[in-house]
């Protein structure tokens, strides 16, 4: 954390990985070695990336080649080009400089997950915060029980990192369930919504933790279904997204009821957000 909480640190693009036509992973390194060694983060946390003269946006931290357990000296950010800032960010080439502020927010509850079965349930395209977490679970495999990855997409093409899922599916004690609303000819998984897959989960309610990420109606439906299947609301965690300008609880844009998503989240325990999740206008 910088002394002046608004001031970015300079970072350099070390590598640029084109994941799909609109999704790019930027591998960044803070240029100040001291700052680099002071930078501790965990999956689910995010940085504010500042593109010179254009603006600042929140982007989740996907660990670099190392695990989050080692120090994350390289910071991967997987960015989908959707608007003004992200479209310009994905064009950055190795050597380019940008600003980084962070890490911010509360990440996934990896401590609570230790020794438990972990169910990662995601929807929508390129759910970077969840994917980074699965990577992390796999890197620290021995610390957790069974792992399941449940991912739903609209079109089959929306699934990025398809080989990654195929690879995870072959790991011991790992269950991968995929669903596409609109499958293509090569789709050999479930057709329909992600919630339709939850009944197929090998679920031991007394030693499970669920982590959800994706569109809010999907998260709400999944959480409620998991509760019907025997999970306590406290065993469910989810990652929220709101407009963010400051990332430190000052600008007010990310408020969700009484919560500041930037500092009280983005990962919340379900009971904290259950009251308002899915209520239009919050």
């Amino acid at each position: 954390m910088t002394i002046n909480p608004y001031l970015p640190l300079e970072a350099e693009v070390i590598e640029r990985i084109q994941e799909t036509p609109t999704i790019v992973t930027l591998r960044l390194r803070l240029t100040d070695p001291d700052a680099r060694h002071r930078f501790y983060c965990s999956p689910g946390q995010f940085n504010m990336l500042y593109l010179y003269g254009v603006g600042e946006v929140p982007i989740s931290i996907k660990s670099g080649p190392q695990s989050f357990l080692d120090q994350t000296l390289l910071l991967d950010h997987t960015i989908r080009a959707v608007g003004r800032v992200t479209r310009a960010l994905v064009e950055l080439q190795p050597g380019a400089r940008l600003g980084v502020r962070g890490p911010y927010g509360r990440g996934w509850p990896l401590k609570e997950a230790q020794g438990k079965d972990v169910h990662v349930i995601t929807g929508g395209l390129g759910c970077a915060p969840a994917v980074s977490m699965v990577h992390e679970l796999v890197k620290q495999r021995g610390r957790f029980g069974r792992i399941s990855v449940v991912q739903g997409v609209k079109h089959a093409d929306d699934l990025i990192w398809r080989e990654q899922y195929e690879h995870w599916a072959k790991q011991p004690d790992t269950q991968v369930l995929l669903a596409a609303d609109q499958p293509d000819a090569t789709w050999r998984w479930h057709q329909g919504m992600v919630t339709g897959l939850l009944d197929q989960l090998t679920l031991n309610p007394d030693r499970s933790i669920a982590m959800l990420c994706g569109p809010e109606p999907m998260m709400r439906a999944s959480a409620e279904r998991l509760i019907e299947l025997g999970l306590e609301p406290e065993q469910i965690w989810l990652s929220m997204e709101r407009n963010m300008q400051c990332a430190i609880g000052h600008c007010g844009h990310c408020q969700f009821g009484g919560a500041f998503v930037c500092k009280d989240g983005p990962v919340f325990n379900y009971p904290q957000v259950r009251e308002l999740l899915g209520v239009r206008g919050f």
Binding site: N4, L7, Y52, R97, G99
Partner: peptide, 17 residues
């Protein structure tokens, strides 16, 4: 103003509160 950023001739960035 919260801070300003300056682009150096070599492309690096300097941030000033």
């Amino acid at each position: 103003e919260l801070w300003c950023a300056q682009e150096q001739p070599d492309g690096s960035l300097k941030f000033h509160p």
